[in-house]
């Protein structure tokens, strides 16, 4: 599904990614772990095409398409979705208008007619139930006045609406209590199809208890320095990252 080769990227003058190689097949869950500043968020922002990041070398292909020539919204239309670590508030733009614009833009890209209002509202209702998000949040502006938990749940709700094939969960567990974590993770699992692949970025094992990774990668200094299975994540949870540094040294 996704193939990253020798990816280098910088923010401003600072090079953060220094040669990432990563292949993700259909239906695979890849956990990405690493200390702060290792480049995890940079990698996810580069995949989705945040204009603040500049790719200096390497390639990313997504189902055979060259992602790097596509802009942010084209990538989204291709089925890539990011659950943001800190979803932004957009005052004055209601959730309903926001989602309608997003759903219809994607439909247009797929050559479909825009949804009729009634059908759209029906879709909203169904998906809302699926991820257990309160109707009252839908009447507000995007993320405005949402609690940390509500924002994360709103991300999963949007994922439900847009039905991506590839998801990046960027520290979706941060700021969530155990119950909220369970609801969000279960929401994600419900939405997954056999094809859906994902990158799960986390510092903790607990999210991986709900979303079982097929592979675990450790990112350090802008490179993937170690790859393993779910057992690697458990080892990191117990021992931290120092042993990996020592191994490398």
């Amino acid at each position: 599904m996704l193939e990253i080769k020798n990816l280098h990227a910088k923010v401003g003058d600072k090079e953060i990614l220094k040669g990432i190689n990563l292949t993700i097949g259909d239906g695979e869950i890849h956990a990405l772990m690493g200390t702060n500043g290792a480049g995890k968020s940079t990698l996810s922002n580069v995949i989705v095409g945040n204009p603040a990041y500049e790719v200096t070398e390497g390639s990313i292909t997504f189902n055979g398409q060259n992602l790097l020539t596509m802009n942010t919204e084209e990538r989204a239309h291709a089925g890539i979705f990011m659950s943001f670590q800190a979803p932004i508030e957009i005052p004055g733009v209601s959730m309903t208008n926001f989602m309608r614009a997003a759903v219809n833009a994607r439909r247009q890209a797929q050559g479909k007619e825009p949804l009729k209002s009634t059908d759209f509202l029906k879709l909203m209702r169904e998906k809302r139930k699926l991820v257990e998000i309160d109707q009252k949040l839908m009447n507000r502006s995007v993320n405005e006045g949402f609690s940390g938990g509500e924002r994360k749940r709103n991300e999963i709700f949007q994922m439900a609406m847009l039905e991506p094939t590839f998801c990046i969960l960027d520290e979706t567990d941060s700021g969530l209590d155990v119950d909220a974590l369970r609801i969000v993770a279960e929401g994600f699992n419900k939405l997954r199809t056999a094809e859906t692949a994902a990158i799960v970025i986390t510092h903790y094992q607990r999210l991986l208890d709900y979303i079982q990774p097929d592979f675990v990668h450790v990112l350090m200094g802008g490179k993937i320095v170690k790859t393993g299975t779910a057992a690697l994540a458990r080892q990191i949870e117990e021992q931290g990252f120092d042993w990996i540094k020592e191994e490398l040294a």
């Binding site: 095409g49 989204a76 979705f81 957009i90 005052p91 004055g92 733009v93 847009l162």
Partner: peptide, 23 residues
């Protein structure tokens, strides 16, 4: 940041700008 968020959801940039001006 809001523009990027909207574009990540697939809203074209020009549309996102219009939505933000409107808001």
């Amino acid at each position: 940041v809001a523009l990027f968020y909207m574009r990540q959801r697939g809203i074209p940039e020009a549309e996102a700008r219009t939505l933000l001006k409107n808001a």
